[in-house]
């Protein structure tokens, strides 16, 4: 990391100001304002089709808002090019990756690619990869094909990739779909430990119980932002019922 990190360090990781986005004439994110401070573990909850994934894509600059502005580490998100600071595990990423002949080590090494797109890896690159593998407990499995691992192990490969990148922001979209309960608990403990070391985490999760236990902040959206605050307050308010409405969301979600 360079001097630039020091300069931008006090800034919020993500700031969204009055952000709206629509697919054609169907609004998906409506006037959302949200700030994520460094070191936050934000759980993003909401019904299916509520715009959680789209909001995250807006935050990462993968989509441009129709109106409003998103800043990522102080830069307009779509112009942000310091890719090594951000790691994203998209929904179903691990399922798709299962078909390719790629070893655990190869996949984790990809975390270093933004640092070194060409040329030999330095000792510090290799060290970052080894440490990441060790951190998630995959040292024994480095030469396995990712597709031959269990769901939980595969998930840890993707986390290790983010760790190898030494990213400051880790964004996960429903990472534990298809993972057994035991591995899932271990996985969330791992996330909490990582967060304790200072990594900012944004987690989209359908299991509200899990989110309220592990996250330091909750944002509840259904197109609009219904709640943003700490988990205790979230449990007391009826933001959840507001956001989920009368079951309409389930009917609407049919993509």
């Amino acid at each position: 990391m360079t001097g630039a990190t020091v300069e931008t360090a006090p800034k919020a990781v993500v700031t969204a100001d009055d952000v709206s986005f629509a697919f054609g004439d169907r609004p998906v994110v409506d006037d959302v304002s949200l700030t994520i401070e460094p070191g936050t573990f934000l759980g993003l909850v909401g019904p299916n089709g509520s715009g959680k994934t789209t909001l995250v894509e807006l935050m990462l600059g993968l989509r441009r808002p129709d109106s409003g502005q998103v800043r990522l580490f102080g830069t307009p998100a779509h112009e942000f090019d310091d890719g090594e600071r951000v790691a994203y595990v998209a929904q179903h990423a691990t399922k798709a990756a299962g078909r390719m002949p790629v070893t655990v080590r190869e996949a984790v090494t990809m975390g270093r690619y933004p640092h070194r797109l060409i040329g030999r890896f330095s000792d510090s690159d290799r060290q970052a990869i080894d440490e990441a593998l060790e951190r998630v407990g995959l040292t024994e499995l480095t030469e396995r094909r990712v597709g031959r691992l269990s769901g939980g192990q595969r998930q840890r490969v993707f986390i290790a990739r983010a760790l190898a990148a030494q990213a400051d922001l880790l964004v996960l979209d429903e990472p534990t779909v298809g993972v057994d309960a035991e591995s899932r608990d271990a996985f969330y403990d791992l996330l909490r430990d990582l967060n304790a070391t200072g990594i900012t985490i944004v987690l989209i999760e359908h299991d509200i119980g899990v989110v309220t236990t592990h996250a330091t902040e909750i944002a509840c959206i259904n197109r609009k932002l219904h709640f943003h605050g700490d988990p205790e307050t979230f449990a007391e308010t009826n933001a959840l019922a507001d956001a989920y409405g009368d079951g309409r969301a389930v009917l609407e979600h049919d993509h």
Partner: peptide, 22 residues
């Protein structure tokens, strides 16, 4: 050979590659 890494990243996980600035 020159573009092996970005090509592999894009093939393996295009969304993550994009988020990583590739």
């Amino acid at each position: 050979v020159i573009t092996y890494r970005p090509l592999l990243y894009v093939t393996f996980d295009a969304t993550a590659a994009r988020a990583a600035g590739i």
